[in-house]
């Protein structure tokens, strides 16, 4: 595959330079465990456009991933870690909106509509008999 070795070397150099620049803050030396992946998918990257922490490569996400990893090693549970992060950054970081005063409508309106539909069906059925 190598056509011109010097270009490869030049390219690698540029590449390595650029990533050392981009990942300067990255000190991650361990493999990400399944649990880190699982937790980081529940959280939103606050500096990106609609990505979760797992998908994103931003410094913010890297830090959160490192933090999750650390807390897991300290023996914390998934729920605890998420609620810690939640209390620090607020509702906006949770991909799954919490069920609370300002999301009751969001969560329950669809079921209410479904229920009304079934009710109408029931009434119509009785009416036509």
């Amino acid at each position: 595959m190598i056509k011109k070795p010097y270009i490869l070397i030049k390219f690698l150099l540029i590449y390595l330079l650029s990533i050392t620049f981009i990942y300067a803050s990255n000190i991650d030396e361990t493999e990400m465990s399944n649990e880190v992946i699982e937790i980081s998918k529940e959280l939103k990257c606050l500096v990106c456009d609609g990505q979760n922490i797992f998908e994103s490569n931003s410094n913010f996400s890297k830090d959160i991933k490192l933090y999750i990893n650390k807390e897991l090693i300290n023996g914390k549970e998934k729920k605890e870690i998420i609620s810690d992060i939640h209390s620090k950054y607020g509702d906006v970081i949770l991909m799954r909106p919490p069920i609370q005063r300002n999301t009751y409508i969001l969560w329950f309106l669809p079921s209410v509509i479904l229920f009304i539909g079934i009710l109408i069906l029931y009434i119509k059925r009785r009416g036509s008999d």
Binding site: E42, N52, G90, D91, M95, R96, P97, N102, L106
Partner: peptide, 20 residues
Amino acid sequence: ITNEVITVGPQYFNTIFIPI
């Protein structure tokens, strides 16, 4: 309306879409 920010992510849609 309220100045409160929340995120509605895939988890929400997946949950609601299963029964539908």
